[in-house]
Amino acid sequence: MQISLTGRTALVTGSTQGIGAAVAAGLAAAGARVAVNGRDPERVEKAIARLRDDVPDGDFTAIGADMATEDGAAVAYETVPDVDILINNLGIFGARDALDIDDAEWRRYFEVNVLSAVRLTRMYMPRMLEQDWGRVQYVASESAVAIPAEMIQYGMSKTAMLALGRGFAKRAAGTGVTVNSVLAGPTHTEGVEEFVRGIVGRDLPWDEVQRTFMREYRPQSLLQRLIQPAEIANMIVYLSSDLASATTGAAVRVDGGVIDSILP
């Protein structure tokens, strides 16, 4: 398939590393102008420099702002007021005993992982509806369906994202705007590697750590390995294209078979 996003503008939140950076690279390689986002402006500029190594002719714009806040969202809108493709990738995660999670932590996960995406969708969807074309995606997780015992606060936030994908798709019904969530499986990012080492052990070789984690904590995975960020990005780039015009309101799986069901 030939995917062209030439003439489109995309915003990828939380895109200085990991899945977000891979998505930014994939969208840029397909011809989109891509706004790269992170809280630290200097880190965003360094991320863009790395992205230009991978996509030399890529068109990147920096947004150094915290998308979990109203002020950060306002900076994004001022920088790129016309967004055709909104990828809500920003998210936090961490292992905690469920009974030790206080109210403030529950609120933080909701505000960062869920409310940030609601706010940006509310901000950018009206123009998409006006032009009768747009793509909104929520980078969810297999944890939305298979809630992990070690981080139910994260699972809760990702389950909420599935509701956003379905609900906002209904708001855009009958238009050229599609809204979907992407169920990403366990993915090898810097943050996930740190998380996995924290659970399995920091002094072991990485290959052993990864195998142990998949065997003991994600045994239902059919890949039996962590997914690479580019593998998630491939699906997101496809859903961002005209080729995916009939896919909306869906929870699309790129989970490596972790979810043990035919449907999400």
Rank of each mutant, 00 (worst) to 15 (best):
A25M: 02
G31I: 05
T16Q: 00
V44N: 10
P41Q: 14
G31E: 09
V36D: 06
G14F: 11
G14R: 12
V23Q: 00
N37P: 10
R43V: 11
L11R: 10
A25N: 12
R33F: 01
V44K: 07
Q17G: 01
V23H: 01
V34F: 03
N37C: 12
K46N: 11
G31T: 03
K46F: 00
G38N: 13
A30H: 01
P41K: 09
G20I: 10
G7I: 03
E45F: 00
G18Q: 04
G38V: 12
E42G: 14
V12W: 10
G18E: 02
R39D: 06
A32I: 10
R33Q: 15
A29C: 00
R33G: 08
A28S: 15
G7F: 06
N37H: 13
Q17V: 00
G7D: 06
G26F: 03
N37G: 06
E45Q: 15
P41V: 11
R39N: 10
A21L: 15
S15P: 07
T13P: 04
V23W: 04
G26T: 05
A24H: 08
G38K: 13
A10F: 06
K46Y: 00
D40I: 05
A10Q: 08
A47K: 11
T16R: 02
A30T: 02
G18D: 09
A47H: 04
